[in-house]
Design a protein around this nucleic acid. Sequence first.
RNA 1: GGUCCCGUAGCCAAGUGGUAAGGCAGAGGUCUGCAAAACCUUUAUGCGCCGGUUCAAAUCCGGCCGGGACCU
Length: 311
Amino acid sequence: MARPDILVVAGPTAAGKTAVSIAMAKRYGGEVVSCDSMQLYKYMDIGSAKPTAEEMDGVPHHMVGVIDPREPFSVAVYQEMAKAAIADIVSRGKLPVICGGTGLYLNALLYEMDFGPSRRDDAYRRELEDFADKEGNEALHARLEGVDPAAAARIHPNNRKRVIRALEAAELDGRPLDAFESVRRKSDSYHARMLGITWDRPTLYQRIDDRVDQMLADGLVEEVRGLMDMGFTSDDIAMKGIGYKELLDCFAGLYPMEEAVRLIKRNTRHYAKRQLTWFKRYEEMVWFNGSDYPDTESWLEDMYEWADRRS
RNA sequence: GGUCCCGUAGCCAAGUGGUAAGGCAGAGGUCUGCAAAACCUUUAUGCGCCGGUUCAAAUCCGGCCGGGACCU
């Protein structure tokens, strides 16, 4: 049985992944599998820039609005669910179009990442957190050095989250993170064609600013208020998303609305930059820079041509 | 016209004689269970301009330019 082909559309936020992935799905008889850590959640529509029913234009979408923000979620769960969705699409003879903004989640599909049984232990994490508060980051890092020297060498002592996760894996799971490195290779489950979309930096940043303004005009404030009414607080993981956390802090009286908007734009720019750094690592990715084209049509035309050639 | 204060990176800003803190923005990067997260690296041969004093000046002196306050 031939490996199923999948098409990956990746790029920084606000580049236009949604429109491109839907256009691709329509042209090649595909269905979109979202690879986005925020669009997964229910009730968070405007702030996570979910495609509207109108935008979807009849193209089925998977992994969008399927998780309650209260549920614990992780990349391991994403991997399992997304792979099932891809298998389902392939079984129906359709093309899975992975629309990706979350690098780690994309890696979970493209690489042989074995997460094993769930070993997340919040109590243990808290214990390590307390230890670090009292003894310092260096002391925590030294503990890791004792059980998983390779991981300790890779993780900066200040990166407490990672140090704690590595300790959790080594001490609780008995499987040092370093063991995963050996299986860190390209997955042979899929033959992925990688399409990267981007813009010149100033244009991308302008698009981000404009989109944030649009989200506010579309009712982001009301959406966040609604989530607060449902009982969500800034402690909830899903509320750590850009646009949500700033507005929550604003409502809590930490700063005025004007400042919240400024922070949302700035944080989104930072995020876009990190995404770009992540996606640059995919050498097989072919980039299409929207700034090189006079209009969306010619931009898409070039992508179609590339896709036709590679098919 | 006079008196006083201020002028340090794109922005905020410390530094009052010994060879330019820090923060923000920007740029680059890391990445196997919170990833829209977390973390790392990097940014002034230069302190408004010109001259002087000194072994040594962002720091002291003089002049000029620019901004502000007050007085007439």
